[in-house]
Computed example of a mutant assay.
Amino acid sequence: MPNRPRPPQHMEIPARHRGRRAFAGAGVLLALATALLAGGTAHAAPAAVDRTTERSGADTGPPAAEPRDRTRVTAAVLDLDGTGREPTVYGDDVTYDTASIIKVDILATLLLQAQDAGRHLTAKERAHAEPMIRRSDNAAANALWREIGRAPGLEAANKRLGLTETKGGSGTRWGLTRTTASDQIRLLRAVFATGGTSDASAGGLNKESRTYVRTLMADVASEQAWGVSAAAGSGWALKNGWLQRSTSGLWDVNSVGRIVVDGHRYLVAVLSDGSTSMKDGVALVEGAARAALTSASGQ
Rank of each mutant, 00 (worst) to 15 (best):
N206M: 01
R150V: 00
L216W: 08
N3H: 11
L144F: 09
A269V: 07
A237E: 12
R214G: 13
R85W: 02
T71N: 00
G162P: 04
T95Q: 15
R150W: 00
I185Y: 09
G287L: 08
A127L: 07
E223R: 07
W226T: 14
L29K: 10
T172A: 14
G39V: 03
M1G: 13
A143W: 02
S209K: 05
A291I: 05
D273H: 09
E66K: 11
I101S: 06
H120F: 02
A108G: 09
G82D: 12
R6L: 13
T109W: 01
G25P: 03
A117W: 06
I102V: 15
R265T: 14
Q244I: 12
T53I: 12
A44V: 12
G27P: 02
I148N: 03
G149I: 00
V228T: 00
E125F: 01
V253H: 04
T98N: 02
I101Y: 07
S201E: 15
A291P: 03
A117L: 12
L163S: 09
A230H: 05
L238A: 13
G227M: 10
R245C: 00
R70M: 06
S272R: 05
H264Q: 15
T197N: 12
R146Q: 13
S209C: 01
H43D: 14
R150D: 03
A292H: 01
E54F: 15
T88C: 04
G281W: 08
R72G: 00
D199G: 06
